[in-house]
Design a protein around this nucleic acid. Sequence first.
DNA 1: GGGAATATTCCC
DNA 2: GGGAATATTCCC
Lengths: 241, 241
Amino acid sequence: MLKKVEEKEKEKKRKQSNLPRNILKMCENMMEINFGDSIISTLSCDKDGLSLKKSSLLKCPPPFLLKTYELLEEGSEVEDGMKIVSWNEEGNGFVVWFPAEFSELILPRYFKHNNFSSFIRQLNTYGFRKISSKRWEFQHEKFQKGCKQMLVEISRKKCEPSVFPSYLKSCSEENATTNNSSVEENTNENHELLMEENKNLKKEKLQLQMQIAECKALEMKLLECLSQCMDSQQNKVRRLC
Amino acid sequence: MLKKVEEKEKEKKRKQSNLPRNILKMCENMMEINFGDSIISTLSCDKDGLSLKKSSLLKCPPPFLLKTYELLEEGSEVEDGMKIVSWNEEGNGFVVWFPAEFSELILPRYFKHNNFSSFIRQLNTYGFRKISSKRWEFQHEKFQKGCKQMLVEISRKKCEPSVFPSYLKSCSEENATTNNSSVEENTNENHELLMEENKNLKKEKLQLQMQIAECKALEMKLLECLSQCMDSQQNKVRRLC
DNA sequence: GGGAATATTCCC
DNA sequence: GGGAATATTCCC
């Protein structure tokens, strides 16, 4: 059963990889069209050969999101009419009605585990929120019924500040100053960015200091060697005279 | 089948966690006995309560190593007498004799996949080496037949240089936490302070880098001197003779 | 072989 | 909820 889902996904990836990969890559690099984690336009491959027409290539969403979306479309039931998990009424979130059954029956068919908490962990990683204290209902702005393509706009929260792509750095500063949509959020973000950068700088500083300490130690040794060498030279010369 | 292995391991972890964890942690922190990734002596827990006796607590090796070791002890066979995977003759490495059968039959019973390459990836992560071009034979200094306990001395290669010695980490984080304490009230002041600190850090970083460059240059000169000195020493001695 | 992204687990 | 370690995948 697990196979089915995985096969489906691999099929998709295979299709995607049928595009001339080198060229795609080069193109992405040169035009930076991969920026922004959403739909990109690029080269495509006809049966006549490579053609340089622009087409909207739909990026594959992260497997976790795709699987979660598909598991909702499938709609298994515990009994007649009682879904284990389903979209909420508004279609802007979903509810796990029977966590035990969900973990035991649904999860292992889509993922490599049957732990509800691991599933939740992933939801959090992708920025979902639990929006009810009474039931297992989760929501994400870009995770909505009937909008499968919107999944590509969801991305994992990055864990390490150090992994800040250099090309993002400059633009995040711009955003903070130009984008007025929500000032508070931006200052917070900016603040956090600064703190992160700060932390990294401190780390780097320490590393550099350690490097210098090593250099100094080496210098001392070399000087010692040199002095010994000169001493012995003197001695030998003296002796020979 | 998968369950059995996982259960066994969880059982072990459960036992380990029955120790008074806070104290263990504190002890580890204070005495830095966790340093070196090997056997540590620490507090243990009797049925009478906590007792402060020293005992040799055997650290649990990483699941991957334990499973790989156990799968070798199990010794499944393709046919009578033909092992799928086994220790090599010297007992200081192991050979996957039948990769296909290994992947299909053995791997999924111990891991959450059946990909030989994922297994290899893990071996590499833990520092194993392929020691034969003719067969799938792997070796690691600390992975030897009959020496299960030695597994605790194997550790993953860390990917990021960011893994700073723990004793350095604490001091570099101090600042960050004190800044955190009052984020909301004086974000602006904080922000400016941060920016200034940031600027200074960058400056310092540059200076340190220049210092290192100078050190390196000096090193080169010293080495040159040393070599000249030794040359001239030879010459003088020769001349005087 | 290994870098890096994503997934899973464990822990706070 | 999320940090961080380990596992799995994907790619070079």
